[in-house]
Design a binder for these strands. Structure first.
Lengths: 130, 130
DNA sequence: TAATTAACGCGACTATGTTGCAATAGCAAA
DNA sequence: TTTGCTATTGCAACATAGTCGCGTTAATTA
């Protein structure tokens, strides 16, 4: 089952790369010039996620966000970092610091999902009337 | 708008306290002896969450989990800890270690949501055929 | 150029969570 | 105890996210 290169796939990847943010399906669809179906976008994103091309993060709003893996090599994927979700502008950014959480004896971690939500600096300032 | 004490509310709280886990709506409803409506359970849980009686955590499965605040005082709520979700037995436990994540300058955090999923020690053993 | 099949579009479906509204039932005051 | 106020509930409808089956399209390779 080898992968094929399609226009929709290319555009989704371009959008993710260029934004530098973690985007959800809706944000991506808004930025698409192609009229790609919702289901297809989900399939593309999940494929990317499986292939280790993007991170998948579930926000505290329950939505799935996808971000291009900029710091990952093909050997090691570093997903143990937090994301910050601004509840005003909706941007989800990556907080680079890798961190390790001590699990109880015998627990086997598979997926790390850390999200902090609040106001990003830009929206903080705007709220304070600057 | 003062709160009233109802049987459904009592039972939900009892279930949360007694289980010691973070439970989602479905898990709670299964354990209820009363025939309480789904919407009501959600309303109860959100009320508890607003009142600081329970933590609300969104899992990497996108579902809302609620856990009784055992370590919180009325002054300080400590929600900056991870939860572990076992993808086998579905249990969500609280990992006590409080931790602090360094945010970029000017960012204002409001909600912390950290979930690690994988296999808990019990399910690890079972999978290894012990 | 033709064959193979990955990827797509469409529609239907599931599940989670929320909301409006009329009915019910805590709680406090009489 | 009774009465009145209104928080809470049940029901139904709704919104949204995400998935899946299936027939069609188009990327790749021979």
């Amino acid at each position: 089952m080898s992968r094929r290169n399609t226009k929709s796939q290319q555009e989704v990847l371009d959008i993710l790369k260029q934004s530098g943010l973690a985007l959800n399906h809706e944000m991506i669809q808004e930025q698409m010039s192609l009229n790609t179906d919702r289901a297809t976008i989900y399939r593309i994103l999940n494929r990317f996620s499986q292939d280790g091309i993007v991170h998948k993060v579930v926000g505290d709003d329950g939505k799935q966000y996808f971000a291009f893996c900029s710091n990952c090599t093909k050997d090691g994927h570093q997903h143990n970092h937090f994301h910050f979700r601004c509840i005003e502008c909706q941007n989800v950014i990556c907080i680079k610091n890798e961190l390790r959480v001590q699990l109880p004896e015998g627990y086997e971690p598979i997926n790390f999902n850390g999200v902090i939500s609040g106001y990003c600096s830009k929206c903080c300032k705007q709220r304070n009337g600057v």
